[in-house]
Design a protein around this nucleic acid. Structure first.
Lengths: 138, 138
DNA sequence: GTGTTTGCAAAGTGTTTGCAATTTA
DNA sequence: TAAATTGCAAACACTTTGCAAACAC
């Protein structure tokens, strides 16, 4: 099945999220959203931006990733207690995590079924279900 | 169903794992294994040890948690990119993570069924499947 | 006694923050 | 021009490490 994600120019996304489309945010948004689903750390995105001639500081990359996540443009994936990974795919889905290369690979939401979900502890509601399949070189 | 875990004195566990049963390791092992399943951060375990009159440094707690994990006595759970959680239950199971209290709660392995597991990417094998159900106060 | 482990303080890694300068609307 | 954003450097939280003293066998 081919998923067509509603195309949305990055500028629209930013303004819709209430974020001023500054030069840095536009450049980072293009890197994140204009080439399919991506999984990046702040350091990786910063390197890529700088490599593409975008002048942006690492601090701004961190702030931008956090703002994008808070606005729902990105999703944070907890796989490693050392660093944060940000996922440009915000739809329901899961991940393979290659422990050798430290790379994430999407698993579409309906490729995995989590059944018999126990009910949340008293006084709590379910906020999300993360499935991470850890793999390593065979 | 009541699960009886094969009882094993902490001293035996340590020597079986090839770790010298030092005063610090014995004390930490007792805190970790003598009262059911536990989920702790290094800081929490250190505080508890000190609170119980055990003289041990935070650095040793970190080293010990890592050694125990490497020996299979503990399992590390990645839920938060800030700190590491260690789980004294090494059997196959999953977790609720309360995002308000930052506490983990076990979900027994057979309470959740992950079906249709996609096969691992070429050249890799599955090493483990983590299911984390994030909850928050309702 | 010999090799292992500990504790301390220092260093390391990833991330956030204060604030003046710059940019956006 | 007023408010938001940036970049830098400093601060921060968590974790690891080097090394001398203490300990286990």
């Amino acid at each position: 099945m081919i998923m067509i994600r509603p195309f949305r120019p990055v500028l629209d996304r930013l303004t819709a999220a209430g974020l001023r489309p500054t030069r840095q945010r536009l450049a980072l948004a293009r890197l994140l959203f204009d080439s399919g689903d991506r999984h990046v750390t702040a350091e990786q995105l910063h390197q890529q931006a700088v490599g593409n001639g975008v002048k942006v500081s690492l601090a701004t990359v961190y702030n931008t990733l956090n703002q994008f996540t808070a606005s729902g443009l990105l999703r944070e994936v907890a796989v490693d207690s050392r660093r944060s990974y940000f996922d440009s795919n915000t739809e329901l889905h899961h991940h393979f995590f290659n422990q050798d290369t430290e790379q994430l690979i999407d698993i579409s939401g309906d490729a995995v079924a989590v059944s018999h979900l126990p009910s949340a502890p008293d006084g709590t509601v379910i906020d999300g279900v993360d499935v991470i399949i850890r793999v390593r070189a065979s």
